[in-house]
């Protein structure tokens, strides 16, 4: 009896018992909640895709529902559109092919995820492109920790809308003010006092666009590049 009490088991039985109980508890939590968590992570990106590809006006006041791969948009005037989003094998952080209606529908565009260093920390973006990748349709900032009231202006729509409709045949540059930005169609006007953040966003967009173009030119196995 005393040998049992002094052995490792006698010392540690409570911990082993607790580990078993807590393990079962965590397993139950995991089984119950992990589908929901994955859904949340997916929905965060899916919800932004219509605005990126169709433009901000098309989704203003619209209600967006997500079921599996399908994103349905019901606009304020009652028109409804539905998109299919399928993730493609890619070297980018993520690349989505978006088609109208069902997966067999016409290719509407591409949405890719890209990231790089900003002023304070990593900036993570979604970049929307037309189906033939000749034009940027919009950008959205997923994650950033730029300085409040200066660099974090990159999330505002008045900064982001500069990117919509720019052709992709030449890399974007940053103009420090409106005059500098007006000199070239590929120039983005920097946020006041946050040139570094603005330049980082442009660099991420340039890199992501270049990457998407290569991905489509030299598709990986299983890549769906149908028009």
């Amino acid at each position: 009896m005393s040998r049992l009490r002094n052995s490792y088991l006698g010392q540690a039985w409570l911990i082993l018992l607790l580990a078993g109980v807590f393990g079962a508890l965590l397993a139950a939590i995991h089984l119950e909640l992990s589908p929901r968590i994955e859904e949340n992570i997916r929905a965060e990106i899916m919800r932004e895709i219509p605005g990126l590809l169709l433009g901000g006006e098309a989704v203003a006041g619209a209600s967006i529902t997500i079921v599996g791969d399908q994103v349905s948009i019901e606009s304020a005037s009652g028109e409804s559109t539905s998109l299919t989003v399928v993730e493609q094998p890619s070297e980018a952080a993520a690349l989505y092919r978006v088609s109208e209606g069902d997966p067999e529908g016409r290719l509407l565009g591409w949405v890719a995820r890209g990231q790089d260093h900003g002023y304070a920390d990593v900036i993570e973006l979604l970049v929307g492109l037309t189906g033939d990748t000749t034009q940027i349709t919009g950008i959205y900032v997923l994650n950033q920790k730029e300085t409040p009231a200066l660099g974090d202006g990159i999330v505002r729509s008045d900064f982001r809308q500069h990117f919509a409709g720019i052709a992709t045949d030449s890399p974007l540059t940053v103009g420090r003010n409106a005059e500098e930005a007006a000199q070239s169609p590929y120039s983005i006007q920097a946020l006041t006092g946050a040139t570094v953040s603005s330049r980082s966003v442009c660099n991420i967009v340039n890199d992501t666009v270049a990457l998407v173009k290569t991905e489509i030119a030299e598709p990986l196995e299983g890549f769906d590049g149908r028009p």
Binding site: H117, G118, S200
Partner: peptide
């Protein structure tokens, strides 16, 4: 020190 990252890059 912030901003060093982008410039070093």
């Amino acid at each position: 020190f912030s901003g060093i990252g982008a410039n070093v890059e």
